[in-house]
Design a protein around this nucleic acid. Structure first.
Length: 156
DNA sequence: GCCAACGTTGGC
DNA sequence: GCCAACGTTGGC
């Protein structure tokens, strides 16, 4: 079982949107080949992922979701009305792959980027790396545990 | 709004 | 296959 961190701008799609779905929802719009490969090759049904709010005030981890489908072509690549439409996408859908996710929990507070930076044990976390721009990235089991514990601890 | 970082595109 | 230009991400 693997762990992930997946970013979304809450103005576009927030953890509340996912919770309101009350079931599987497609994680759409990723247009990066590394992320595509994660979806296709590295994720498994049952993996857990942090939901991260980017371009938000504050930015940070706001909850947990679960990967609930196998990899399949992101339907928005074929939709001319979608902002994610890709006119060059091959018809077999091999270019942009995604999966369905399902809401698991919303933390009682946002674990902010600066708090992640200050937390011992998270020094090597992918999301803290300078210049990292992936919207989906792996998290270690240890990191997942540390952040989950943080979320359950009262604010200091 | 700025800008650093870095992924992607396209000319050659 | 190189690499400059361009576009995007995302924190601040």
């Amino acid at each position: 079982m693997a762990y992930w961190l997946m970013k979304s701008e809450p103005d576009c799609y927030s953890i509340d949107d996912l919770r309101a779905k009350a079931g599987p929802d497609v994680w759409e719009g990723c247009r990066n080949y590394t992320v595509r490969n994660f979806f296709r090759d590295s994720m498994s049904v049952g993996d857990l992922a942090f939901f991260y709010h980017s371009v938000a005030a504050p930015t940070g981890i706001v909850g947990v979701m679960k990967v609930v489908s196998e990899a399949y072509p992101d339907p928005t690549q074929f939709d001319p009305k979608s902002e994610y439409y890709d006119p060059k996408a091959p018809a077999d859908g091999s270019r942009w792959i995604t999966r369905d996710v399902e809401f698991v929990e919303k933390f009682s507070r946002c674990i902010t980027l600066s708090e992640l930076r200050e937390t011992p044990g998270l020094e090597d976390m992918f999301v803290l790396r300078k210049g990292q721009r992936l919207s989906v990235m792996p998290v270690t089991e240890t990191e997942f545990g540390i952040v989950s514990d943080l979320a359950r601890r009262p604010t200091s």
